[in-house]
Design a binder for these strands. Structure first.
Lengths: 170, 170
DNA sequence: GATAATTGTTATCCACCATATCAAATGGGC
DNA sequence: GCCCATTTGATATGGTGGATAACAATTATC
């Protein structure tokens, strides 16, 4: 597996237009058991979905990671960095710069906890709530809507449940 | 979205054992609409699958990316770097070091093409074929077998087809 | 034969992930 | 109270993957 962006290879472009057999020198490559490898297809699909997410939410300049942080802060106001980061699978050191970015854009605030003065209470600002609301709308009406259009609601639900199963039990 | 490794957060560990209500200060965080975000679950599942892949094929010291290259070379011997790389979505510059690694381990060879002396014909060595065969066996008997055990064959097929659809048409 | 395009390559940059380490603060044992 | 381990946020740092620009050698096009 490997997988990054362009699926439409350059090999096809290099093919000559003359009448060649299907096995001519410029023929498309055989994917072989690659198309049966779940990890490979999984990664390709994930890249596509993230790509589309970025496009849909581009007006708000939010990455998937930042969006997930805002979502979590909205549902869990007052938590500290360790809790938010670990819930999202982010290591605490890497979460610092990320929060710096969000805080410098006035989307959330760090305030020292009264109980435990080591930790910071993380809270969304009003601007953060507004941006999140707009982001949620964009995601729902553009991103997820497009997925629903491709798969249909029931297939989408099935896919989600299988992926959740893998993420939790595998 | 964000997603990296540990799903089992540290927030749960920090919970006190005393009799607290469900909304106590140490309660688990609410995931909110995060668990409904396909991109988020998709990435988490992908990380799990890659993690397991690495474990299963660890004796052969092959990454998912390297495995995919070997698979493609086996099915498409004699292709050049541009063709192999672009098929896998790898940029040509980044594919150079990758091939260096495989070639230095004597898994494949670069030989100047007779027709076009700019390009290299890529071919698996005998050792490369042997390693690939062993890798395929490990993947089938350990990695994919475990997925089949979790999902069942028919669900696995459904999942694969939906992911392929996303990867191609989304 | 002059010019454009392609191939492999290098250099370089950026994002993300991971580890070790630190100071400040807290908690536990005594 | 005091010592010691732990926790929290933070810094520095390294590794890996992905992306662009540029280059020499070669080939294609006109």
């Amino acid at each position: 597996m490997t997988v990054s962006r362009s699926a439409t290879a350059g090999g096809a472009k290099a093919r000559k237009e003359a009448g060649e057999t299907a096995t001519g020198e410029g023929a498309a490559l055989q994917m072989g058991e690659l198309s049966e490898l779940l990890g490979y297809v999984l990664k390709r699909a994930q890249l596509r979905v993230f790509e589309d997410f970025l496009r849909c939410v581009a007006p708000l300049q939010l990455t998937p990671a930042q969006f997930s942080v805002l979502l979590l802060l909205d549902r869990n106001p007052g938590r500290n960095q360790t809790e938010i980061a670990s819930t999202l699978g982010i290591l605490r050191p890497n979460f610092v710069a990320m929060l710096d970015g969000l805080e410098s854009r006035d989307l959330c605030t760090r305030t020292r906890s009264a109980n435990d003065r080591r930790s910071h209470n993380l809270v969304l600002t009003d601007k953060g709530k507004a941006v999140l609301a707009r982001a949620k709308r964009l995601v729902a009406t553009k991103h997820e809507a497009r997925l629903n259009e491709l798969l249909g609601p029931e297939s989408r639900a099935t896919l989600l449940s299988m992926l959740t199963r893998i993420a939790r039990e595998f």
